[in-house]
């Protein structure tokens, strides 16, 4: 049954749909949170001169390659009942997975946003100064005018979040029907030797990522045409 995952997809297998929708829910929420933190941080690093700024940029760029298991382990230790935030009792829940993924991809979004915003800032800086636009106004303008490039940064973050397994399996526990995502399901099926199902799930994951990227590409192209970006 090489196509078993596709068969389940077509026949609307509820367990499979729960896995897919949990994956999307966790990674999209994590991307949203990472955007709320990463975009302003990227803008800050692009616009503001402060002591240690270059060090922060180097660190943020380095953290882009942070291994998911390391993030997973750190979040696990924080959220474990024996850890500092244990009293909230959210280890082995989707919330813990969202936190881990948000931490994982915030540096990616921040670093890519910083690059985009810095490039745009070089162009806009004098014009905005001449129009007496302050820092907050400048950030808002740069985020808005750079929105199509920033969308790519968000997608890069989402792609990494939805593809990673190391962090979610540690902090989520891969609980059937509760914290099982596509990637942890793939890891589980592989360990059970059910390679066709694992491959099928992998193909479904790939299709979803391709579909979301195609949508974003379309939005971006349309937007650029409207905004006349070059």
């Amino acid at each position: 049954m090489f196509s078993s995952a596709f068969w389940m997809l077509i026949t609307g297998d509820p367990a499979l749909y729960r896995i897919i929708s949990l994956s999307l829910y966790v990674s999209l929420t994590a991307t949203l949170i990472a955007a709320l933190a990463g975009l302003p941080l990227g803008a800050l690093l692009a616009l503001k001169e402060f002591p240690g700024r270059n060090a922060v940029i180097v660190i943020v760029n380095a953290l882009m390659g942070m291994p998911p298991v390391v993030v997973g382990l750190a979040v696990f230790l924080l959220l474990s009942r024996s850890g500092p935030l244990g009293s909230f009792g959210i280890l082995f829940t989707p919330r813990a997975m969202i936190i881990a993924q948000a931490i994982l991809i915030t540096p990616i979004i921040a670093a890519l946003a910083r690059q985009t915003i810095a490039d745009l800032w070089v162009q806009y800086r004098d014009e905005l100064a001449a129009m007496n636009v302050g820092t907050a106004g400048s950030v808002a303008t740069l985020l808005w005018d750079g929105r199509f490039s920033l969308l790519t940064a968000l997608l890069a973050g989402f792609g990494r979040a939805s593809a990673e397994v190391g962090a979610v399996i540690i902090v989520g526990g891969n609980i059937d029907g509760f914290t099982r995502t596509m990637t942890t399901a793939i890891a589980l099926e592989t360990s059970k030797g059910d390679l066709p199902l694992a491959i099928g799930l992998g193909a479904v994951l790939l299709l979803i990522v391709i579909a979301i990227n195609a949508l974003a590409w379309f939005v971006r192209r349309t937007g650029e045409r409207l905004a006349g970006a070059t």
Binding site: Q123, Y124, D126, E127, A129, A130, M131, N132, V133, G137, T141, D145, G146, A227, G228, A229
Partner: peptide, 30 residues
Amino acid sequence: APVRRAFLFQRPVMLMRSAAGNIDYALASV
């Protein structure tokens, strides 16, 4: 602060908006 003065650069940079959007931005800035 440059409230009552304006500047036209030798190579002006257009905001990534429509022509009306560019003027609207300046109008909003005052």
